Amino acid sequence: MVEPALERTLAPDDPRSPVILDLVGNPALKEVQLSSRPEQAGTARKLTVAVLRQWNVGSLAEVGELLVSELVGNAVRHTGARTFGLRMGRRRGWVRVEVRDPSRALPCLVPIVRDLDESGRGLFLVDRLSDRWGVDLLPRGKTTWFELRAPQ
């Protein structure tokens, strides 16, 4: 698990941010387990940005950072889990980011989000900004994922 002090030390635009992959783990190589605390969304963002830069698709960093934050926020707020997993994959023309949690409750996309609504924007943003997204039910839990088209 990532300590809060580390959370504050590495900004996503810091050229040393790949160091976080060594300290926490590389979600492109193996699922990284993070504790279900709101501040861990920052760690997930940093990991996502570091991997995207490592893959030379830094142009996806801003949207990837936002969308992973939304998926982590849902996992932390709505599942009651102690931990969640972050994993990333790449295939020709696509980048995939996955957040796994032990709850089998499906996330709900709110079709219309109004200005004064206090919740419901997370999956709305994922739906609007990703090229594809979905949920895979597992024997114990689920994986919520999004995909972005990657420049060749």
Rank of each mutant, 00 (worst) to 15 (best):
G85I: 13
R77F: 03
L67M: 01
L125E: 01
L71A: 01
V97T: 15
V113I: 08
P38M: 09
G25A: 07
A11H: 14
L47C: 12
L67C: 01
A81C: 07
V113M: 02
V68E: 00
V72K: 00
D127Q: 12
A44P: 10
L23S: 08
L106E: 15
V63Q: 01
E65H: 02
S119N: 05
R140Q: 14
V113L: 04
R82V: 06
E7P: 07
N26P: 11
D14G: 13
V19W: 07
F146M: 01
I20C: 14
N74E: 00
E118V: 05
R82C: 09
E65M: 04
W55I: 07
Q40P: 10
V135I: 14
V51S: 12
L29K: 14
V57A: 05
L116N: 02
V95P: 06
A105R: 15
V126S: 05
F84K: 03
R128A: 08
V113P: 00
D127N: 13
D127V: 02
T43F: 04
W145F: 06
V68H: 00
V99Y: 05
L60N: 03
Q40D: 08
T43Q: 08
L66P: 00
E98G: 13
G73P: 00
R82N: 13
V57Q: 06
Q40M: 14
M88E: 09
R82G: 15
G134Y: 09
L10W: 10
V113C: 02
M1K: 09
V68N: 00
L138H: 12
K30M: 11
E7V: 14
L138K: 09
N74G: 01
M88C: 07
Q152G: 12
L137W: 06
P12Y: 15
L10A: 14
D115C: 04
T48L: 09
V126R: 03
W94A: 06
G89H: 13
R128G: 02
S119G: 06
A11F: 08
T43S: 13
T144R: 02
S69V: 00
V2S: 12
K30I: 10
T43H: 11
T79R: 03
F84H: 08
G122F: 01
G64L: 01
A150N: 02
L60R: 01
L34F: 03
D101F: 14
G42S: 14
V49K: 07
E31A: 09
L10M: 12
G89C: 07
K30H: 11
R132M: 04
L29C: 12
P12G: 09
L52C: 08
E65R: 01
W55D: 04
R8P: 03
V76C: 00
Q33N: 04
C108P: 04
K142A: 10
D101L: 14
S35F: 04
V97H: 11
A81K: 03
T43A: 15
A41P: 05
M88K: 06
R104M: 10
T79H: 03
G93K: 14
V72C: 01
L125T: 03
